[in-house]
Design a protein around this nucleic acid. Structure first.
Lengths: 343, 343
DNA sequence: TTGAAAGCGCTAACAC
DNA sequence: GTGTTAGCGCTTTCAA
């Protein structure tokens, strides 16, 4: 394999333990020795073998974040925050990708693939509460997102019901009365979007509006195309909606495309609100009103909790609910006069 | 630590080697024994310790893909293909993230962090050819993207000059005469976008059009906001362009926003073409004409070459140039009657 | 301040 | 078809 501790020890004429101490600083080393060893390290280009270290110490300094979708900017952004937080705490964060696949989620949660990982942050889609409870692996696990709750692990997620309530309330306050929900899941058992759907229903009830089945659009996935398709279906109906609350921004963006293609105006004919506050919605035409979860907080808290647990100084596992806010833009408020870009 | 081979061997009343053979299948095992061992494995929930395996065999079955930007859908999509290809070849692909940072790129290339990794696919931004040549690590390395060439490693990238030529030629064929380039890099030394810039200049020359410095917009990064800013600057000029070729789709999308905000029409007043063919451009308003590199091929070939090298059966390192094509949409051709956005 | 040595879990060479 | 065993490179205890 590569250059090992032994090679350095030989070269510098010291023992293995001394080299190890120069590298890790667990014990003090004489100045002269340290210099000699460091020189050998530089000359030979020594790099510690993580596997060996892990095998011996049980720690790798690596944690993983498993996300369901790579092509959803929400997760990309979240991952960015998590990676930076992990780095600042002296850990390396590896990104894993489940493709929303149940088997992959189970494998990861079980640690089959890993073992090289000190802990895992998982954003599950298909995993059930029972799966989590049946888990055998003792590797620390932190869950994020709305899909699994009340398990003996840290769980980080915003209050999805409340956030959805705010979104729908915003549409109601604008005078909209036929408000659609886009992104109910075809899988009615798991219904990954159940919390946001519930918030939608509650908000309608609060406003004294009826919940119409025909205004709930299903999707099998949560991408732009799903939003496009669902919205087209809805526009083909006798009585189309005058506003749309989408499960997430990607669905909202797809829906906006469908509305535009149909020759309708946003927000005059149909107002649209999304969920996630991905950057794309700040540049789309029109720009997209959305619910902005505190992604930075979610990422940082998830990493922080996990590392605390890895290092053994963690309290009882619990729920953390980062904040969110409503960000209003053109898709519900209408186009502003273009800020005079000089000329 | 967890359950080990020894625990299983004890439980099943066999030797370590036999359990190892049940797990790995290197040697045949008697049916009765296999069943007994498998049972013990299931009961105890045994999971092989990758670090130990690695330490012994020098292989982990893990390769890494290091990308510069997480929030650029181009890389997310590429990563998706790479991950799937790796899985189908029996490897796990870990995603690393350099944030376009030189130090991080160097560290990764040097394998400092890794050691647990059998090989690395790197999409460099700041790394120079000299850096790559000075590399000491013997871990197989595959490079992707336009930034480093002529190094003793496999290098996968489309012909960026030719592709840019095609893009600009498309604008010329539409009768555009004042064609801007958006996304020249402020760092003129490295100039990460130099190949696309060269293609732009060559195409103008071919068409007999002058290369005007005032029509080359610089950006420090390659995101939507950079496109927005650069385009605003250009629109403030005395003679704005009648077409824009952007370094990538994100810049193009940002530029489109700036054009729309200025009250101008796309493509009537200004045509826009991007590079990458990210999904967003198929749903934007208007949809975005772009150069579509064969991302799937790039991802698959990169993984395939790397694994071949890891397993020792690889030929001379070389260049691979996947294909690309021009995808025309509304941002250059104008709005069609509402029809499905091409997929 | 430094050294010697045990052993983490596994694979593979060698024996039977 | 199965068992024994030497180490892979490292951390860490015990001794000096």
């Amino acid at each position: 394999m590569g250059v090992s501790l032994k090679d350095i020890a030989l070269r510098a004429g010291v023992s293995l333990a001394t080299v190890s101490n120069v590298v890790n600083g667990y014990r003090p080393v004489g100045e002269a020795t340290r210099v000699r060893v460091q020189q050998a390290i530089d000359e030979l280009g020594y790099v510690p073998n993580l596997s060996a270290r892990h095998l011996r110490s049980g720690r790798t300094g690596i944690i993983a974040l498993a996300i369901p979708e790579l092509d959803n900017p929400y997760f990309a952004e979240l991952a960015g925050y998590a990676i930076r937080e992990a780095r600042s705490l002296g850990y390396t964060l590896l990104l894993e990708y489940t493709d929303s696949d149940r088997a992959t989620e189970l494998t990861l949660a079980e640690g089959n693939r890993s073992q090289i990982i000190d802990g895992l942050i998982l954003s599950p889609v298909q995993l059930t509460r029972a799966d989590v409870l049946a888990r055998r692996s003792t590797t620390p696990l932190v869950l994020i997102g709305e899909n699994v709750a009340e398990v003996p692990h840290d769980h980080i997620a915003i209050d999805n019901v409340a956030a959805s309530h705010v979104a729908v309330q915003h549409l109601v306050s604008l005078g909209r009365r036929r408000i659609a929900f886009l992104g109910a899941h075809a899988d009615t058992v798991r219904q990954p979007s159940r919390l946001r759907l519930r918030g939608y229903q509650e908000a309608l009830a609060t406003a004294g509006l009826p919940v119409e089945e025909s205004l709930i659009g299903t999707a099998s996935r949560f991408g732009r195309l799903d939003g496009l398709t669902a919205m087209r279906g809805m526009l083909a109906r006798a009585e189309p909606p005058d506003a749309v609350f989408a499960y997430n921004d990607l669905i909202a963006l797809g829906a906006m495309r469908a509305v535009t293609e149909a020759g309708l105006r946003i927000p005059e004919d149909i107002a649209v609100i999304g969920f996630d506050d991905i950057e794309e919605g700040r540049f789309s035409n029109p720009t997209l009103t959305t619910i902005a979860p505190d992604k930075e907080r979610i990422g940082r808290v998830a990493v922080g909790s996990l590392i605390a647990r890895v290092e053994g100084n963690a309290a009882e596992p619990g729920e953390v609910q980062p904040s969110f806010r409503l960000v209003t833009r053109e898709s519900t408020l209408g186009r502003f006069t273009p800020a005079p870009p000089s000329r």
